[in-house]
Amino acid sequence: MNAVALTAEFVVRELRGRFSGSFAGILWAVFQPALQLAIFAFIFVKVFHAKVPGADAPGYLSFLAVALWPWTAFSDAILNATKAVQDNAALIGKVALPRSVLVLSRVCASFAIHVLGFVVIVCALSFFDSHVRLLTGMLPALLLYIPLFALALGFSLVFAAMQVFVRDLIQLLAQTLPLLMYCAPVFYDRSIIPVAVQPWLSLNPFTFYAEAFHALVLGHGALAMTGVFWALVVATLVLLAGYGLFRRLDRHFEDFL
């Protein structure tokens, strides 16, 4: 089984499926984030007058956008991939294929769309906000997507396998995943919450990524090497554990689909 060609084929199918029937097609990958950013600009900046604390702080809109897009990739990947096995029940029942490819391709598709959106958004923001660093900030920041991808894939493998047995999981995830975002410094800076709570934020796996994107793209805060190290360790462990669990359960998918 040529897994690379197969994954590529599934990713193409996935992307085509998401945009099929719409006139703008793949352009939605760019329109959608631009539209969303415009809405955020109106709500948070015009209505709520949200600001990032600090003397030389970046504009709130860029602050929000550079962490929100990685989050969207992460959560979109997990929510889509969790149903990957269940949605392909017909295929699984008839064709022998490595089932993890189904999960992998959905995670790939989500990341492809949202990384593209991220690049577009950061480029657009660089016109309005002098804090946005395109070459020195955005390019290294794209590397952050690698451990983030591994993390999302690891979680997706776990959830996709469990979803086969317990169909409530996707409902539960749709409700609880946003909680993870609110518990990470995406909409706010860590410095504005009570000091006693601040360290706890680091337990959230996404906290590192939110702050790392802020640091790299906007120069807001510093990127600690220990943070990078732990993020890599966590992403690797989650991926390995997820794959192990998936392999353990995937022999039995057909019986429960």
């Binding site: 089984m1 040529n2 690379v4 060609a5 197969l6 590529a8 084929e9 599934f10 199918r13 085509r16 499926g17 099929s20 295929l91 008839k94 064709v95 294929l97």
Partner: peptide
């Protein structure tokens, strides 16, 4: 085995051929 097993009804014949060839282990 079954009629159209592994074919996706929404996709064209060409796309489905590509997919089933990939499922048979062919490289791009």
């Amino acid at each position: 085995l079954e009629l159209g097993a592994g074919f996706h009804p929404e996709h064209t014949g060409r796309e489905n051929i590509l997919m089933s060839a990939a499922l048979h282990g062919l490289s791009g």
